[in-house]
Nucleic acid binder design. Structure first.
Lengths: 216, 216
DNA sequence: CACGAACCGTACCGTACGGTACGTATATGG
DNA sequence: CCATATACGTACCGTACGGTACGGTTCGTG
């Protein structure tokens, strides 16, 4: 396992601590609770410092996204040989991780924030969130899918298409429902298993299909 | 074709016109642009009337959702006999309609609004949006899927599970990306076709699979 | 015509936010 | 010991919003 190297802390430790407090505030009370005065009070810093460090409120929001993205690191698979069983397991683990990330407090809060602003700031935050937050997980999935293809376990023409199919099967409308505040959507395990079964049925080669339960 | 009977206009025509203006304002400028004064000005009505009709700002937002939901009516299939080809076509049409609805200006604006508020109002708007906005499309899809099963074209144990699979295949992460403001996601036709192909491959009986192109 | 209800336009109030300015404390470096 | 920089805390300003009050106007009804 090798961890991705992140640019070492875009911000100073003090600033990171402030951003942490800001995220906590956002998670607890939503965007409305995220006032510059509130952040300063919660983080024991001055508003003047906030504006010096982050420019303005939007800069603070961007910094929060960048900071959170820098915290979430995803591990690359090592190059061990894939079998039908281990591919299945890896994809299931990926699916669960994906659902877990999307269901996280901070992730939901930041997505809500970016979505709420997306039609008045030209979707600056949204772009940031997609680029910094999703690239990691996208790369991990693509690497996994590609490895499956090289091992003769998966078959597809367009890897991106296959990945988006997997994503849709795993997430369905869960993300939007969670963003809308629907409670009780935590049964990720079964959902992940079903999604992976369907994905392998669609893209698996005979080697994989042979080990799957028959359609009853 | 029979149109669903909607409770005839929860609001007066004048109020509907006001809500229409409010929606326009929301679409154009986001939540921040949706001020009570702005709505009153745009709709040529008084703030006092707004508060008399809708109680407070939240009541106005709820009314906007209810009004929009009352506008979107979906048609029920008539009971003609389904064949493999017509099932395919109907599902494709459904998929396209679904993407078209989700990509609509007003739909996106209302979803953004509800999501933005969902962690400070106990997700009242979110619940409303899911209940009033989604039930129609859900029912249409369930009816279609059920008809497919009765015609011996589809096979599944849990219709809800099958529907969510279809939804995920069709929408993938498109909805969230659109909510985040990502531009250029309008190639719905191909996306719908691919999704339906995958869905039928997963849930179609031999009658359906026989008419599908082989996996190359 | 007279009366009342509904409604419009505007002015107003309290509040809370984003952003700025200032006085003070702490720390670093010569 | 002084000088400079950094940051804290507080007070302040302008603005804009949600919500209310009020006078004037339209319109339906007896």
């Amino acid at each position: 396992m090798s961890v991705d190297t992140a640019e070492p802390s875009e911000f100073s430790p003090r600033q990171n601590a402030v951003l942490e407090q800001a995220l906590q505030l956002l998670v607890d009370g939503g965007e409305k609770a995220l006032t510059t005065s509130g952040v300063a009070r919660a983080a024991n810093c001055s508003k003047e410092s906030l504006y010096k460090w982050f420019g303005d409120r939007d800069g603070l929001l961007s910094a929060m996204i960048a900071y959170q993205a820098s915290k979430v690191r995803t591990f690359e698979r090592n190059g061990e040989r894939l079998t039908a069983a281990s591919l299945h397991d890896h994809v299931v683990i990926f699916a669960r991780d994906l659902l877990e990330v999307l269901a996280g407090d901070v992730s939901l809060a930041l997505n809500r924030l970016a979505i709420g602003q997306s039609n008045r700031d030209g979707s600056k935050l949204g772009k940031l969130l997609l680029e910094r937050g999703r690239r990691q997980i996208d790369r991990r999935a693509m690497a996994l899918i590609d490895a499956g293809k090289r091992a003769g376990l998966l078959r597809f023409a367009d890897a991106d298409e296959a990945y988006h199919t997997l994503y849709g099967l795993v997430v369905s409308d869960l993300h939007v429902r969670m963003l809308l505040g629907e409670p009780g959507l935590k049964d990720t395990a079964r959902q992940a298993e079903r999604a992976v079964t369907a994905f392998l049925r669609l893209y698996g080669t005979d080697k994989v299909l042979a080990e799957m339960p028959v359609l009853s």
